[in-house]
Every structure is written in structure tokens, then in C-alpha cells.
């Protein structure tokens, strides 16, 4: 891989769940001109008051190395792991997809939802809200298919990711 190749990396960051921590992380990215493709954050250990942030970012290998070192330098950061380079991992995201329509289009939407194992979580006589989970590709494909079938609204969580196997972060 050339040193100028831009690659997407999924980075997992374990942080102290304290006020301002997200602003610190986001401010670091904007202040140093890095990209955020996707970002998710929530408390994962209430007892220890820890949150896990999953960031998908893009950059040359040198930039990615910088991003990780800069994140690790923040005082409330426990650990930074680059899932993309540290062996196999799984990525998932969840989307809510609202589709409005009647007749054949409505039936087709329901049929495709079945294929994608999307759940119906709200139904009206002329609309559905589907919940679909999977990797980014799958979610994107499903949303794309709904475009012709009355898509009116989409909301996505962004990626959460974890390494395969029995090891913790």
C-alpha cells in the first residue's frame, strides 16, 4: 500500500463518560482537519462510567496513525484500538426507513423487507417504518431499493464495531 493511499479505518475508543468528552473527540477531528465518516457513542459500563465511541475515519496511513495517537493523548481516554488493522472484526449499523405508498408498491416494499430481514416497527394503512440492521453495504442497498417504493425518511445510527473472538477491547 502506497503511503498516500487513503483508506477507511474503524476505530474503537474507550472513554470516561464525563461531560465534554464527545466535544473533545469531535473538536480534535475538526481542529486537526481529520474526517469523520461515522460516529456512534453511548455508555457501555455504567458502574465504571465508561462509554465506547466507534469512529469511522479516512486518511493516509500516516494520518490514521496520528489520529490514534492524538485520541490516546486525551486525558479521559482509556484505550484506542484500530479494528481495521487489529484482525477480523464485525460492523453493524441500524436504520429506520419510512416508506409511504399503497397497492403493489406497498406489497413490494414488504416483500423486500422480508428478504433483508427488516422488521416492521410501525404500520399505517399507507406507510411502514422498517428497522434494518447489518453492515453499511446492506443498509445502503435496502435504502436504495426503497427509493422507488415511496421512501420518505431515513435515520441511521452509524457503525458500531467489535473484534471477533473472545478478547475484550
Amino acid at each position: 500500500m502506497s503511503k498516500d493511499t487513503i483508506v477507511a479505518h474503524t476505530i474503537s475508543v474507550l472513554v470516561a463518560n464525563e461531560p465534554g468528552i464527545l466535544a473533545r473527540v469531535v473538536g480534535l477531528f475538526s481542529g486537526r482537519g481529520y474526517n469523520i465518516e461515522s460516529l456512534t457513542v453511548a455508555e457501555t459500563n455504567a458502574q465504571e462510567s465508561q462509554s465506547r465511541i466507534t469512529i469511522v475515519t479516512k486518511g493516509t496511513p500516516m494520518i490514521i496513525e496520528q489520529i490514534k495517537a492524538q485520541l490516546d493523548r486525551l486525558v479521559p481516554v482509556y484505550r484506542v484500538r484500530d479494528l481495521t488493522v487489529e484482525g477480523p472484526h464485525i460492523e453493524r449499523e441500524l436504520a429506520l426507513v419510512k416508506v409511504k405508498g399503497v397497492g403493489e408498491k406497498r406489497v413490494e416494499a414488504l416483500r423486500l423487507a422480508d428478504v433483508f430481514r427488516a422488521k416492521v416497527i410501525d404500520a399505517k394503512s399507507d406507510s411502514f417504518v422498517f428497522e434494518v440492521t447489518g453492515n453499511t453495504d446492506k443498509v445502503q442497498t435496502f435504502v436504495g431499493l426503497m427509493e422507488n417504493l415511496g421512501l420518505v425518511d431515513v435515520v441511521r445510527t452509524g457503525i458500531v464495531a467489535m473484534s471477533r473472538g473472545g478478547e475484550a477491547l
Binding site: 500516516m62 496513525e65 496520528q66 495517537a69 492524538q70 490516546d72 493523548r73
Partner: peptide, 10 residues
């Protein structure tokens, strides 16, 4: 500071 390493010069 590990972030100083390979920041400007490899």
C-alpha cells in the same frame, strides 16, 4: 508524546 512521532517526519 507518542503523537509527536511520525507526525511530520517518518
Amino acid at each position: 508524546d507518542p503523537s509527536s512521532i511520525n507526525k511530520n517526519v517518518r
